[in-house]
Amino acid sequence: MLQILTGFGFLSGMSYPFRLLRLFKSNPGLLSYIIVPIVVNIVVGIFLYIGLFFFGWQVTQLLTDNMINRLDLLLADLPSWFNSLDYLVIFLGWLIRIILSILLLILTGFVLVQFGVLLAAPWYGNLSEKIEKVRTNKVEIIEVGMIRDIGRAILFELKKIVLILGCGVLIFLLSFIPIIGAIISTVGGLTVTGTIICLDFFDGALERRRLKFRKKVSLVWKTFPASAGFALVCLLLIGIPFINLITIPFCVGSGTLFVCDRILLKHL
Rank of each mutant, 00 (worst) to 15 (best):
Q3R: 06
F8A: 05
G9S: 04
S12F: 12
L23V: 07
F24N: 06
K25H: 10
S26H: 12
N27I: 13
I34G: 00
I35S: 01
V40L: 10
I46F: 13
L48C: 08
F53L: 07
F55H: 09
Q58R: 10
V59I: 15
Q61M: 13
L62R: 12
L63F: 11
N66K: 11
M67L: 07
N69P: 02
N69M: 08
L71V: 03
L74V: 12
L75M: 07
D77A: 11
P79V: 03
P79Q: 03
N83Q: 07
N83A: 07
S84M: 05
Y87S: 08
L88I: 02
I90N: 02
I90L: 07
L92N: 10
I96F: 12
L100T: 10
L104F: 03
L107C: 08
V113P: 03
A121Y: 13
A121M: 13
K130S: 09
K133E: 15
N137T: 15
I141Y: 13
E143G: 05
E143R: 08
M146I: 11
R148E: 14
D149A: 15
G151N: 10
I154W: 08
I154G: 08
F156H: 00
I177S: 00
I180M: 01
A182V: 14
L190F: 04
I196P: 00
L199T: 00
F202V: 00
L206T: 01
L206M: 04
E207Y: 08
K215P: 15
V220M: 12
S227D: 05
G229E: 01
F230C: 04
V233P: 07
C234D: 06
C234G: 05
L235R: 12
L237W: 09
C251I: 11
S254F: 03
C260T: 14
R262K: 10
R262Y: 10
K266S: 09
